[in-house]
Nucleic acid binder design. Structure first.
Length: 467
RNA sequence: GGCGCGGUACCCAAGUGGCUAAGGGAGAGGUCUGCAAAACCUUGAUUCGUCGGUUCGAGUCCGACCCGCGCCUCCA
C-alpha cells in the first residue's frame, strides 16, 4: 500500500487512484524567464521520483507540466531586452528542456503553454462570470473569494486574520476585496495582449493551471505537485477557480516539496548563494551526483545544499558505483550462490517498503547499502559467482528505474595520450620500475584521474584533482 | 502576528511507545598491495535541544520553555 502526505488533509493518506489504469498527475512547471536554479531542480527531481515510483509499481501515469510563458517576469524580461515575448521565452524553454534532460528526468506527456491556451482560459473565465464567481472591473476580471466559502482549505489560511500588507498600495488594479485575485488583466501599455470576448488583455497567473490541467487530465484528477511556496496563493486559487467552475472536487492528492536552502540560508541572488544548474555544471559538478544529493533528502524536509554536502553525496554515490564496477569487471568463477536471490528479494522489499511510506528515500537507500555490505563480504569470502554478479547488477538496474542515477553513462573514453601514459606505467610496473610508475600515478592524480591496481588489471576513475 | 518545519554521534540522516537507537560521509584500526592509492572489512551515541508529566515502559505521547529555519499575493 502506498501512502502520501496530502497537504489538503494535513495527514498521511493511503493512495487510491481514481482509476488504477492510469494516474493523472499535474506538476507546476517553470516560468520561463531564467535558467533553472537548483531549487527548481529539487522540485523537478522530487516529482520525477514520485512519477518513476508509480510507474515502478505498475501504474501508467499521464503527466502534464505547464509552461508559464506569459506573466509579469517574462514580460519584464522581454521588455528589458527589447525583444518579443515569444523570442525571449523560447530561450528559456529550450534551456529548461536541456536541464531536465541532464538531470535524467522523465518527460511529461504534455507541456502545455499558457499562450497557447488563451481561448480555453477565456471560456473558463466566462463561465465563472456567468456563475457569479467573478466580476469585471476596469477591464479586468477578478475572482470573488467571498463567493467561495471553502477558500483557505488547502493553506489553512483564515482570511480575516490575513493582514493585507503594503502591497495594496502598489496594486494598480481596483478590486472589491483585497484578497480577490485577477483572472484576466486589462490591456496595459507595453504589455502583450489578446483581443478576446472578455476584452483585450492577458491572463492572470492562476487560471492557466486550472484550465490546462482540466483540459488534459479531466476536471478531477489524482495528484497535483509543486513547491510549498505555491500552496498559497497559487494552488488555493486554482482550487477556487476550478471547483467554482466545475462544481467538482479539483484534486485528490496535493503533494508539495519543501524548499532548498544553501549553507543554512535562503537562496537568493542578493546573498550570492544562488546557483543555477548551469552554474554547477560549469563547476564540473556531475549531474548524477547532484541528482543523487537532491534525491536523498526526503521531499518534505528542507534540504540544505552546500558543497560539503555535495562531496558527501559524491562519496556515498561512489560506493554504489564501485560496487557495480566490481560486479561487472571482476573475474568470478562460474556458478551461483543460492543465497543471492533471497538477498535481492529482501533488498527489493525494503526498498519498495520505504518508498511506499510517503517516499521515504532514506529507508530505500539503506536497503541498497545493506546489500552492498553483505555482498562485499561474500565476495571477499569467494562466495559470489558469475551468475550471482549478473543477477545483482540487473537487480540494481531495476531499482534504478526509480532512482535514475546509476544508469551507465556512455563509457567515458580518456584522451589517447592519457591512455598511453597509463600503458607506460603498466610497462614500468612490469619492469619493477616502481619509482617511475609512482611518478606517473601522481601525475595523473593531479589531473583528477585515480588509478587502482587490481588483480584484474589497472582501473581508472575520475577523482578530485589534487595538487 | 498567522501558518508550518526542524533540533538524534564530528557532519548528513532514518527511526514516532517495547529486543543491543538504521544507513551514508569523515576519523581510527585491519585486509589487500612492490609500496601506495583506491577498494573492502571492522569500529561509533548508557543516549536522542531543556525541564516537567502520562505510562510497567518514551527519542517516540502530553505540557511548558530554549534554539534554528521556511512560507504568508505571483520565488519550486
Amino acid at each position: 500500500m502506498i501512502q502520501f502526505y496530502n497537504t489538503l488533509s494535513g495527514k498521511l493518506e493511503p493512495f487510491n487512484p481514481i482509476t488504477p489504469v492510469e494516474i493523472k498527475l499535474y506538476t507546476c512547471g517553470p516560468t520561463v524567464y531564467d535558467y533553472s536554479h537548483i531549487g527548481n531542480c529539487r522540485a523537478y527531481i522530487f516529482e520525477d521520483l514520485l512519477k518513476r515510483f508509480l510507474i515502478f509499481k505498475g501504474y501508467k501515469v499521464k503527466h502534464v507540466m505547464n509552461i508559464t510563458d506569459v506573466d509579469d517576469k517574462t514580460i519584464k524580461g522581454a521588455n528589458a531586452e527589447g525583444i518579443k515575448l515569444q523570442e525571449y521565452t523560447k530561450k528559456y524553454i529550450d534551456t529548461f528542456f536541456e536541464d531536465i534532460n541532464v538531470l535524467n528526468i522523465l518527460k511529461a506527456d504534455f507541456y502545455p503553454r499558457a499562450t497557447e491556451h488563451i481561448q480555453d482560459m477565456v471560456k473558463m473565465i466566462k463561465g465563472l462570470l456567468q456563475k457569479g464567481y467573478a466580476y469585471k472591473k476596469d477591464g479586468s476580471v477578478y475572482f470573488s473569494i467571498a463567493k467561495f466559502p471553502n477558500y483557505g482549505q488547502l493553506s489553512k489560511i483564515n482570511l480575516e486574520e490575513l493582514k493585507p500588507g503594503e502591497r495594496i498600495e502598489s496594486d494598480e488594479y481596483e478590486k472589491e476585496n483585497v484578497n480577490d485575485f485577477a483572472l484576466w488583466k486589462n490591456k496595459k501599455e507595453g504589455e502583450p495582449f489578446w483581443e478576446t470576448e472578455i476584452g483585450a488583455g492577458r491572463p492572470g497567473w492562476h487560471i492557466e493551471c486550472s484550465v490546462m490541467s482540466s483540459k488534459y487530465l479531466g476536471q478531477t484528477f489524482d495528484i497535483h505537485c509543486g513547491g510549498t511556496d505555491n500552496i498559497f496563493p497559487h494552488h488555493e486559487n486554482e482550487i477556487a477557480q476550478s471547483e467554482a467552475y466545475s462544481g467538482k472536487k479539483f484534486v485528490n492528492y496535493w503533494i508539495h516539496c519543501h524548499h532548498l536552502i544553501v549553507d543554512g540560508e535562503k537562496m537568493s541572488k542578493s546573498k550570492g548563494n544562488f546557483f543555477t544548474l548551469r552554474d554547477l555544471l560549469n563547476k564540473n559538478v556531475n549531474p548524477s551526483i547532484l541528482r543523487f544529493l537532491l534525491l536523498s533528502t526526503h521531499y518534505r524536509k528542507m534540504l540544505n545544499f552546500s558543497f560539503k554536502a555535495l562531496e558527501q553525496a559524491s562519496a556515498s554515490f561512489q560506493r554504489i558505483k564501485d560496487f557495480l564496477y566490481e560486479l561487472k569487471n571482476r573475474s568470478f568463477e562460474e556458478g551461483e550462490n543460492e543465497e543471492i536471490p533471497l538477498l535481492i528479494e529482501e533488498m527489493n522489499q525494503n526498498f519498495t517498503g520505504g518508498l511506499n511510506d510517503d517516499l521515504n528515500i532514506a529507508v530505500a537507500l539503506r536497503a541498497i547499502f545493506e546489500m552492498i555490505r553483505k555482498v562485499n563480504i561474500l565476495i571477499s569470502q569467494g562466495k559470489i559467482y558469475r551468475e550471482d554478479a549478473d543477477k545483482l547488477v540487473s537487480s540494481f538496474n531495476s531499482l534504478d528505474e526509480v532512482l535514475g542515477v546509476l544508469h551507465e553513462e556512455k563509457e567515458e573514453m580518456l584522451p589517447s595520450e592519457i591512455l598511453k601514459i597509463i600503458e607506460e606505467r603498466e610497462k614500468a610496473r612490469k619492469e619493477k620500475n616502481y619509482k617511475l610508475a609512482d611518478q606517473i600515478r601522481d601525475e595523473l592524480l593531479r589531473k583528477g584521474i585515480v588509478l587502482e591496481d587490481t588483480k584484474d588489471g589497472v582501473r581508472w576513475k575520475r577523482g578530485k584533482a589534487k595538487s
